[in-house]
């Protein structure tokens, strides 16, 4: 049941309000950052499912390092790239808890590739949220493994050269091949419709972890207005024009539908 308030003698129902699981502290993310939208949606789902007391999150090194300051649940901070390994330990000690990680592309796809791939291969009952914004946002916009071909970053001022730096890595397609993963999907939050789809994907991933089906990976194709040197609105346009064609949205693997 939604809340109802009265104004000028007429009743209005609350369609949307700030999730109770989010603390009052203002997020440090730049204006328009997709990280904040993801954390908002995660706390919305956790609140709706009544899992606040039964969830343990693992925050990485990167922009989402302070996630424990914003999410009112038990959180653990992991060493750079090792969030999936720490989450493995937590989920084995507390098999009844819902364990998830929030990681960026510099954390998960660069320094933490081994931990991520092996956690997925073992089929640990964790949910991995992977925010792919094609850049190292926290350290000043350097080239990441997921940076697009020709994309200008502070460490590739002439654009990414694939002969020198290789091709952008598609983590979701990579881990979808592993037998341990049960649900791999790629989502975005650039339109209200995509926000709703992202929320549905989060719900599905959490259900999989509660049903002990294996590892779920939700890749959020994100933006980095500061790293891309754009206004938030322009970064959303660039996101739709360049990021989504390279990283197409949709479910990549779902064991329920095979």
């Amino acid at each position: 049941m939604s809340k109802v308030i009265e104004r000028d003698g007429v009743q209005y129902e609350v369609i949307w309000e700030k999730p109770k699981g989010l603390k009052e502290k203002q997020m440090h993310y730049c204006p328009g950052c997709a990280h904040s939208t993801l954390e908002k949606l995660i706390m919305e789902v956790i609140g709706e499912k009544g899992l606040t007391e039964n969830t343990i999150g693992v925050s990485p090194v990167g922009c989402s390092v302070f996630a424990y300051d914003y999410m009112d649940i038990d959180m653990q901070q992991a060493a750079h790239g090792r969030a999936a390994a720490v989450a493995t330990g937590i989920s084995r000690v507390f098999p009844d808890k819902l364990v998830f990680t929030i990681q960026g592309d510099g954390d998960l796809a660069a320094i933490g590739t081994a931990e991520t791939i092996h956690a997925c291969n073992r089929g640990e009952n964790i949910v991995i949220f992977f925010v792919n914004n094609a850049i190292y946002g926290m350290t000043g916009g350097q080239m990441a493994p997921t940076t697009l071909e020709g994309q200008i970053t502070s460490s590739s001022p002439h654009g990414r050269d694939v002969k020198l730096a290789g091709h952008p890595i598609k983590i979701s397609e990579l881990v979808a091949q592993l037998p341990g993963t049960c649900f791999v999907t790629r989502v975005a939050v650039n339109t209200p419709q995509n926000v709703k789809k992202t929320k549905a994907a989060i719900e599905k991933a959490f259900n999989n972890a509660l049903d002990k089906k294996g590892t779920s990976l939700v890749e959020l194709v994100g933006n980095c207005p500061s790293g891309w040197k754009m206004t938030p609105v322009n970064s959303y346009i660039w996101w739709e024009k360049n990021m989504i064609p390279m990283y197409p949205l949709g479910v990549i693997k779902d064991v329920d539908n095979n």
Binding site: R7, Y12, I15, E17, M27, S36
Partner: peptide
């Protein structure tokens, strides 16, 4: 009209939306 699109997109959850019951 209280569609809630602005609140869905808002990264910082600053908007509360009310719609006529």
């Amino acid at each position: 009209i209280g569609c809630g699109n602005c609140a869905l997109m808002c990264p910082d959850s600053v908007i509360t939306v009310y719609r006529l019951k």
